[in-house]
Each structure stands twice: as structure tokens, then as C-alpha cells.
């Protein structure tokens, strides 16, 4: 059965691109436009993988990532961050939040800086759920 991937990104073009890439390679993609929608979809159905943008209106990827990692039902789902932010900036903001909130959140399973190359993304997706 095809593995299910949730693609969360506020840019329509990126959602279309990543979901087409995944579907063309045998995965089943579902899209969400922001963190809030992403969390709702994660609660509705079971996913094998999440690709997550960071800077989005309404609810950012940073917040959704922390919510996932603090939810026992969702924390085991592998997550690939796909962002225009540099990886070290993302990790730094997580460390600051760790300190501030007093809760340790693990590093994402993969981090890809935008623009995401299709081959690079597929390698990571297959590594995590292939």
C-alpha cells in the first residue's frame, strides 16, 4: 500500500510540486496550507511522513513541529523540514524554545533548504519511509 505523506507549505507552487513528485514516485500525498491545517489533518488520519515548511502564516512550522514531537500519537512520524531558513537558524530557534519552554525536542529526521531538488528530496523520503 502506498505510504502516506502530509505536505505542509503555504506556497501553492511548492505544495503542487512536492505532491506531484511524491505521487509520481508511488507515494500518496495530502496537502495543508499552514501549521493549523496540518495539525488538523494529522489528527484526522495516520501519516507515514510529514514534509514541513517553517515560515507560514497562521501557525508556523516551528510550532507544528513542537506540537507533533510533544504529542505521543504523532511524535514518531518522521519529519522532513523543507525551508528557506538555514538549518542552523532553525536548530537555534528550537534550542531557544527548548530553554524557554523547558522541553527538549529532537532534531528533525531530515532538513532540506529551499529550493528543494527533487532527487535530494526523494532520497530522504525513501530513506525514511521507502
Amino acid at each position: 500500500m502506498a505510504k502516506k505523506v502530509l505536505v505542509v507549505d503555504d506556497e501553492m507552487d511548492v505544495r503542487t510540486y512536492i505532491s506531484t513528485l511524491l505521487e509520481s514516485n508511488g507515494f500518496k500525498a495530502t496537502v495543508a496550507e499552514n501549521g493549523e491545517q496540518g495539525l488538523a489533518k494529522l489528527k484526522e488520519a495516520r501519516f507515514d511522513l510529514v514534509t514541513l515548511d517553517v515560515m507560514m502564516p497562521k501557525e508556523s512550522g516551528i510550532k507544528l513541529y513542537r506540537e507533533m514531537k510533544n504529542d505521543p500519537e504523532l511524535s514518531a512520524i518522521p519529519t522532513i523540514i523543507i525551508s528557506g531558513l538555514a538549518k542552523k537558524t532553525f536548530l537555534h530557534s528550537q534550542k531557544v524554545l527548548d530553554k524557554f519552554k523547558g522541553q527538549q525536542v529532537p532534531e528533525p529526521d531530515a532538513y532540506i533548504e529551499k529550493p528543494a531538488e527533487p532527487e535530494e528530496l526523494l532520497v530522504e523520503v525513501k530513506r525514511l519511509v521507502g
Binding site: 506556497e11 507552487d13 511548492v14 510540486y17 513528485l21 531558513l85 533548504e113 529551499k114 529550493p115 528543494a116
Partner: peptide, 16 residues
Amino acid sequence: HSIKNILSGLRGGSYM
């Protein structure tokens, strides 16, 4: 950040 978003759209478009 704006340019990276545009590049993502271009990269996605060319892939498609």
C-alpha cells in the same frame, strides 16, 4: 527568503 520562495516555484515548475 523571497528569492528562495521564487526559486522553489521555478524549480518545482521545471520538475513538473
